[in-house]
Amino acid sequence: MSLHLVNGITIGIVLFLIGVFGCMTQRNLIKIVLCLDIMFLGLILFFVGLGYTEGGTAPILGGYSVYVDPLPQTLMLTTVVVELSVTSLALALAIRVYEQYKTLDIEEVRT
């Protein structure tokens, strides 16, 4: 197992931090929702990276000596579903907010 700096874990963490940074800086609701997506994307990558083994294969049938840990991948299926519903709900709410306030700028939505 070689130590590449560019692997699922580091990229995942970097993406996660980018998402957090976006949530801290973006002024537009849609962009904030996108940043949430980036955060979760990073997390998904992080999890998949955790289970990844150099040269491993999918453990579908027996007979492999080196295989990828399947548990994080299955977990991430659930996370993808959860994230999908959160994003769709957020976007739906953003539409309603836009209807009511005629803007998506968080500063004006504040009150």
Binding site: V20, C23, M24, R27, I32, I106, R110
Partner: peptide
Amino acid sequence: CARDINYYVAFMV
């Protein structure tokens, strides 16, 4: 306390 969401996330971090 009345701030934007940006500040809230920053507070959290």
